[in-house]
């Protein structure tokens, strides 16, 4: 299980959502890579019970996710997924749109 993020082919910076130029080195050639886990930094519970989270990858990229499955706390490492109906246990769902994959060069 994993979630896709954008990687700069030149400086290897991880980016999400997808950029047009790399904000670090200015190059415009990217690939997509799979990120498997992230660490929960903050969570918020909405009035309808949905729990959203800020999840940090190694290296510092932060994603906004919905926590699914069992409960999870800040500081905990969770599997990342682009599948809203992922398997058992706590998961961090990151929605994507297919355009993320279209700009590979």
């Amino acid at each position: 299980m994993s979630a896709v993020v954008q990687e700069c082919r030149n400086c290897r910076s991880l980016l999400f959502p997808a950029r047009l130029f790399c904000p670090v080195c200015g190059e415009d050639s990217f690939s997509t890579v799979a990120a498997e886990t992230g660490t929960i930094e903050q969570t918020t519970t909405l009035s309808d019970g949905i729990v959203l989270a800020t999840v940090a990858l190694d290296g510092g990229l932060r994603l906004i996710a919905r926590l699914t499955g069992s409960e999870a706390e800040p500081g905990q490492s969770v599997p990342l997924t682009n599948d809203p109906v992922a398997g058992s246990g706590a998961n961090a769902y990151i929605p994507i749109h297919t355009t993320l994959n279209e700009d590979q060069s």
Binding site: F16, P17, E41, Q42, T43, T44, L46, I50, L52, A53, T54, I64, A65, R66, P84, Y93, I94, P95, I96, H97, T99, L100
Partner: peptide, 17 residues
């Protein structure tokens, strides 16, 4: 692409965190 499908309806959750 990445927030509305969570689902997230407006920026409250982001500013909550």
């Amino acid at each position: 692409d990445h927030l509305a499908p969570l689902p997230m309806k407006g920026p409250n959750a982001l500013f909550a965190m």
